[in-house]
Design a protein around this nucleic acid. Structure first.
Lengths: 197, 197
DNA sequence: CTGTAACTTGTAATATGTTTCCAATACCGA
DNA sequence: TCGGTATTGGAAACATATTACAAGTTACAG
């Protein structure tokens, strides 16, 4: 893949929507040409094929999300509070780019064959959570739990809740109120389901 | 789609593994013929196309999972206990058929265009959970929470935890110890992350 | 200004794979 | 046996990804 200029990056914006709507195989290069305005030949000049167009979009979004996540947790607040901020940041990224996010989900099943994407998911979702869980155990605001289980649970909770709202919202952007959803999810994840009686 | 005989159902078993390994578009009808032993013409006689082969596999698995879920919650135990049983049943279904499960995840993003599948997911995952949450609020063993949020969170937690283990396990069947994973997930979901100090 | 290399795009060819069609054969109930 | 349905092989139609290539355009170093 050749280096992508900012112009090209902007042109490719709309491509995610096509993948989201029609699925990978339902998306023709012709459709990408139509929506981006970039001629097919040019697409092949920059990308090695259709799949690379897709992975470019995913990595681009994941990188931005990872940056937002890193920023969200780099404060002086308690680990518990920062965990809420992190979830809110992740959901905000989802709400603001529902199409890409939907496509990412569609690739989750074969993520083991897309090492770059798997790594980017780690950076944007798992690693920040793992860090906060460790911090939280240290500052005593969070229970000490199995980090692997907890990151999976939290990742699943965030991504599926977000996807649920995205599908409900059809094509609106932002697809949902990230702060509100984050608050609901965090309430559940922090306090659990069990009655305190 | 013509009615599928039990013989044919059995023949199609292996197909999910191909979809899981190569992805939908990477899977050729030729590969399906090879792995199932069913000639291409016959596949087209029964299914309207490649996509319908896939949705058949998903519905078949989801129907079985829904039945297992229904059975798991039809006991005299408390709602809290039955919730654990339900999660264990769902994870067992996943562990026993990792390929199909992986493919299901891969279709989650476009589930809004597969109404049958969406409905089957509701039956196998969301509705049983929703019922138990209501029961649990009634019998006071569970907190009264927003059902929509909680079902999404729980669904995400289960499916992503399961997928995580499936990917780790590569091709082993069962892919992981469902009882053990269910216990970890339930601990987290019931008690939450917050420290009780 | 000019030459060179990189960028961009249209057109045409090729390769792969899905899907349709149809005729031949096997199977099965009345 | 007869009539219909199920099953299958083979060929052909069709769509699309991908490659090849030539020609136009731009950026920029010298």
């Amino acid at each position: 893949m050749r280096p992508i200029s900012d112009d090209m990056r902007t042109s490719m914006r709309g491509a995610a929507a096509v993948f989201a709507e029609r699925g990978f195989d339902g998306t023709t290069m012709e459709a990408l040409r139509e929506v981006t305005g970039v001629p097919t030949s040019t697409l092949y000049y920059y990308f090695e094929g259709k799949e690379q167009v897709l992975t470019f979009l995913l990595e681009d979004w994941l990188d931005r999300t990872a940056a937002a996540a890193a920023e969200a947790i780099a404060t002086e607040r308690t680990a518990k509070e920062r965990l809420g901020d992190l979830v809110a940041a992740q959901l905000t990224a989802m709400a603001n780019d529902p199409a890409t996010c939907q496509v990412l989900l569609a690739e989750l099943g074969r993520i083991d064959r897309l090492p770059h994407i798997a790594e980017a998911v780690q950076s944007a979702f798992h690693r920040p959570v793992a860090k906060l869980l460790a911090d939280g155990a240290a500052d005593r605001h969070l229970r000490s739990v199995d980090v692997d289980v907890a990151t999976s649970v939290l990742y699943g909770a965030v991504i599926i809740s977000g996807l649920h709202h995205i599908i409900d919202a059809r094509d609106e952007v932002p697809a949902f109120d990230a702060t509100e959803v984050a608050a609901s999810v965090m309430d559940l994840v922090l306090h659990g389901l069990e009655s305190e009686e």
